[in-house]
Structure formats: structure tokens, C-alpha cells
């Protein structure tokens, strides 16, 4: 068993680009659900909106890449209005139903053949982010990679991670500041009881729209970072499973806490990738033959088994620490009253 290899994987993935993407999407979802009580089951739709904003700006409109980021943000705002205006007047469940459907509709629409010239349809959009990498401060002649202890990073990855974690830090800061302000107080009050908020003279619908838009844009930034990292926008990377992984991230961290999506995302990716390497090592060394037989573990089902194991962990968490890592049990108990 090569523990060094496992640890390397845990650290590099736990702080890698995927963790950044999930942290951003989680910060957005946490604003929706954790603070405002909006049931958004289509966060991946906002990620796709952001990603396709950048991609389409370069590919279809032939804009400058950096303006593409603005287009991505505009797409997210548009999506928030589109989803929010008709559904936010209704009960919370309607938003949930609409968002999950909308996120699938977006995926199917962008991969539709008729959109080939705009979205690249099922081939997607590739190599659109060169200007992003042109500014890479880690680029140096000769070597393309950096070694820290036993981690090795490509210069491009380091650049994405630097920008990514900086954006995460900014979003955490903004969330923290907003949630301690009177604005955040109104959101939390809406989560508890919307009618009471309206009776006290606040336009609850407007606040819910603002929260949906803000969380959507932050989720969109996550989507942008994901496609910039891959230099490729692919419709099928934005499938509904991603939304539920992001829910997992904020539940692990504890809903309604500023840091929870960040720590949740790190733990999620560290565990998922650590588990994968661990199971592969197990297969190679034959150290756990009985265990392998019990799970019928083989090379082709390792990635399924790792999610099974993660699911089991999640169930145990719900049983023994339902408030997540940062949540407060005292606060959670108030739900039962």
C-alpha cells in the first residue's frame, strides 16, 4: 500500500481546481438555501450559464475572452430572473421543481445540433481561454511544472488554483459581510417566515430574487473556472448529479455557515479521490482479498464503490452529526418546534 501516493492524491485534489469549482457553487447554493431558504435543485444550471457565457462570447460572438466573463455573469442574472419571477411568489417547492427542470433544459438546449454555431452542440467549445493563461505569472522558460515537497503542479494548474482560491476568498468575504448586515438579516428572516417579513414592510420577493441572482452568479463563476481549467466547455459535464454533489458539499459543511461550502468542498474532493486511490491500491496489492470479494471490487467498478462508500459516510454524518461540521445542533433543534 503506497500511503504516500494516497496522501498526495488527497492533498492535490482537496485543494485542486474541482474543489475550487465546488466551493464556489456551494457558496452560491448556501446563499440560496442556507440563508434564504430557497430550494435550488438546479445549481448546475447556473454553472452552465456562466461557463457558456464565456465560451459563447469567444466562440460565437468572437468577443474578447474577458468580456466573456461579463456575458457569463449576465447569463446567470438572466437565468435567476427567468426562474425567480414566475416561481418565487409561489411556495418553496415550485422553485425546486423548476430549477431541476431548467438545469436539464439548459444542458439539452446547448447540446442541440441546431445550436452548433453558437454553443458547439455536443462537441462543445474548446481552446477559448488562451488569454487567461497568457497572464500566467507561473510561466517560466524551460520547466513546465513546480515541485512542493512531494506534490507536483503544472504551471497552468497553479495559475488556475491561485485565481480560483482568490475568487473563493473574495466570495467568502462578501458572503460574510452581507450576512452580518441588515440585508442578510432580511434574508434569514425570509428563510424563517416570509409573511412576517412582508408584514414588517420588506419586499420579500425582491430579496429572494436578489439572493437567487447573487448565489447564481457565484455558482456561475464556479462554472467558468471549471471550463477555463479544462479549456473546454462540454454540455454533459453539467448534468444534475453535479447539483446533488454540491448539496452534499454544503450539508457536510453545515448549511447557513460562511465557511461550510469551502471546507465541505475540500473534504468532498479529498475523500472522493483519496478513496479512489485507496481502493485501486487495495486491488493492486491484494491486501484486502476478503474485502474485495465482499464488495466484488474490481478495476471497472472502483469509481462506483467510492461513491457508495461516500454515501455511507454521508448517512453516518446525518445520523450522528446532522448539523454538519460547522452547524449548531442547538439551532437545528429549533426546526422541530
Amino acid at each position: 500500500m503506497d500511503w504516500g501516493q494516497i496522501l498526495t492524491q488527497i492533498f492535490s485534489q482537496g485543494f485542486g481546481t474541482q474543489a475550487v469549482v465546488f466551493a464556489l457553487a456551494g457558496i452560491g447554493l448556501n446563499i440560496h438555501f442556507g440563508y434564504t431558504g430557497l430550494l435550488n435543485f438546479g445549481q448546475v444550471g447556473f454553472m452552465a450559464a456562466g461557463a457558456y457565457g464565456v465560451g459563447m462570447a469567444v466562440f460565437w460572438l468572437e468577443w474578447n475572452f474577458w468580456f466573456g466573463i461579463l456575458l457569463g455573469i449576465a447569463y446567470c442574472l438572466g437565468l435567476a430572473l427567468l426562474l425567480g419571477v414566475p416561481t418565487l411568489r409561489l411556495r418553496a417547492d415550485y422553485l425546486g421543481i423548476t430549477t431541476i427542470a431548467a438545469s436539464e433544459a439548459i444542458r439539452l438546449f446547448v447540446r442541440w445540433r441546431g445550436n452548433r454555431e453558437r454553443t458547439g452542440a455536443s462537441e462543445g467549445i474548446n481552446d477559448f481561454a488562451d488569454p487567461f493563461y497568457a497572464n500566467n505569472i507561473f510561466t517560466r522558460p524551460g520547466s513546465q511544472s513546480y515541485k512542493f515537497l512531494f506534490f507536483e503542479y503544472r504551471a497552468d494548474d497553479l495559475w488556475v488554483m491561485l485565481i480560483g482560491w482568490t475568487v473563493v476568498a473574495l466570495c467568502v468575504l462578501v458572503t460574510w459581510q452581507l450576512m452580518r448586515s441588515p440585508w442578510g438579516r432580511v434574508l434569514k428572516a425570509i428563510r424563517e417566515d416570509e409573511d412576517a417579513v412582508r408584514a414588517l414592510g420588506k419586499n420579500a420577493l425582491s430579496y429572494k430574487l436578489q439572493a437567487l441572482a447573487l448565489g447564481g452568479v457565484i455558482g456561475g463563476l464556479g462554472g467558468m473556472l471549471q471550463v477555463i481549467d479544462k479549456q473546454s466547455v462540454q454540455p454533459d459535464t453539467f448534468n444534475p448529479v453535479i447539483t446533488f454533489m454540491i448539496w452534499t458539499v454544503i450539508i457536510v459543511g453545515g448549511v447557513g455557515r460562511v465557511w461550510s461550502p469551502v471546507i465541505g468542498a475540500i473534504i468532498f474532493w479529498a475523500l472522493i479521490s483519496g478513496l479512489e486511490v485507496f481502493l485501486r491500491e487495495l486491488l493492486q496489492t491484494g491486501a484486502g482479498d476478503e474485502f474485495e470479494q465482499f464488495l466484488n471490487l474490481n478495476v471497472s467498478n472502483v469509481s462506483q464503490v467510492k461513491f457508495m462508500a461516500f454515501g455511507l459516510g454521508l448517512m453516518l454524518l446525518m445520523r450522528f452529526r446532522p448539523q454538519g461540521i460547522f452547524g449548531s445542533r442547538e439551532e437545528m433543534a429549533l426546526d422541530d418546534r
Binding site: 441588515p182 438579516r185 432580511v186 428572516a189 424563517e192 417579513v197 447557513g256 426546526d335
Partner: peptide
């Protein structure tokens, strides 16, 4: 508003 403190409840008004 259960998960707001009594003072926050008041300030909201």
C-alpha cells in the same frame, strides 16, 4: 423568526 435572536427579530422591524 426561530433562528434569529430576539434582538435580531426586533431590529428587522
Amino acid at each position: 423568526l426561530s433562528k434569529l435572536s430576539v434582538l435580531e427579530n426586533m431590529k428587522l422591524g
